[in-house]
């Protein structure tokens, strides 16, 4: 019997996302966003979190949705921006920056790839009242690109380049995204991994181990890399 996404709960949420909306979403919900979101990743975090720079715009007033993304974009001859596809980059790399980022900007929604270590949800997201939405695929770049109605700004593009600049985007029906963590700190990936891990050991039954081991090698395949 083939699976199907038909039974999943689908929601449209206004961005910035209200506390009321945040409280009602659950792991595994499918979400589409309408409103304003901004991108921020290594370059932006380095400047703001590590070097103490002020964000280029008042993010508390602008939006509480931080997209871990660099768009496939080009600066046109007339100075305007053209965005083709947008997709997320793997978020676990930004674990260290997020506590300070949340405190400084009031960010409550992270949109990214792959989720965070469950410890990050408990220690950083839940206290900040924040949730994590994962992009789908990964690589629904054309669908997400369609959802961008307007580029409102590309901050720090001279200094950080196209890929690392802070892009401020007005979006409509921007998705699909999947709720990976909720306000209680539940994690969809953690739940799914637990189900998969139950079967993994059996897969290796009867396969002899290699003659030469590697440093750090483990036979526990349920361990996470991130």
């Amino acid at each position: 019997m083939a699976g199907s996404g038909d039974g999943l709960r689908k929601r449209r949420l206004a961005a910035p996302v209200s506390d009321e909306d945040l409280a009602t979403i659950c792991c595994g919900d499918i979400v589409f966003l309408d409103g304003v979101i901004y991108t921020g990743r290594e370059g932006v975090y380095r400047k703001v979190v590590d070097e103490g720079a002020e964000p280029p715009v008042d993010l508390r007033r602008l939006s509480n949705v931080n997209f871990h993304c660099s768009p496939a974009a080009a600066v046109q001859d007339d100075g305007s921006y053209r965005i083709g596809a947008v997709t997320a980059t793997a978020s676990f790399r930004f674990s260290r920056a997020l506590p300070a980022w949340f405190a400084k900007t009031g960010c409550k929604v992270v949109v990214g790839k792959g989720g965070m270590n469950p410890k990050d949800y408990r220690d950083t997201f839940v206290p900040a009242g924040a949730v994590y939405l994962t992009t789908v695929g990964y690589g629904t770049g054309a669908l997400l690109g369609r959802g961008i109605r307007e580029v409102l700004a590309a901050h720090w593009i001279e200094e950080l380049g196209i890929a690392q600049a802070m892009w401020v985007l007005r979006v409509e029906n921007f998705g699909p995204l999947i709720v990976e963590s909720d306000l209680q700190g539940n994690s969809l990936f953690e739940q799914q991994n637990a189900a998969i891990n139950e079967r993994i050991e059996k897969l290796y039954d009867g396969l002899k181990t290699p003659a030469l081991r590697r440093h750090g090698e483990t036979d526990d395949k349920t361990e996470e890399l991130i």
Binding site: S4, G5, L8, I30, C69, S70, P71, A72, G84, A85, V86, T87, T89, V136, G137, Y138, G139, T140, G141, A142, L143, L144, G145, R146, P176
Partner: peptide
């Protein structure tokens, strides 16, 4: 659901002539 979304994404990329994935 993910595979359905990806198939839809391929159509969107072809129709819009935009990159299928931003990475």
């Amino acid at each position: 659901f993910v595979i359905e979304a990806m198939l839809e994404n391929y159509d969107a990329a072809r129709e819009d002539r935009r990159a299928m994935c931003a990475d």
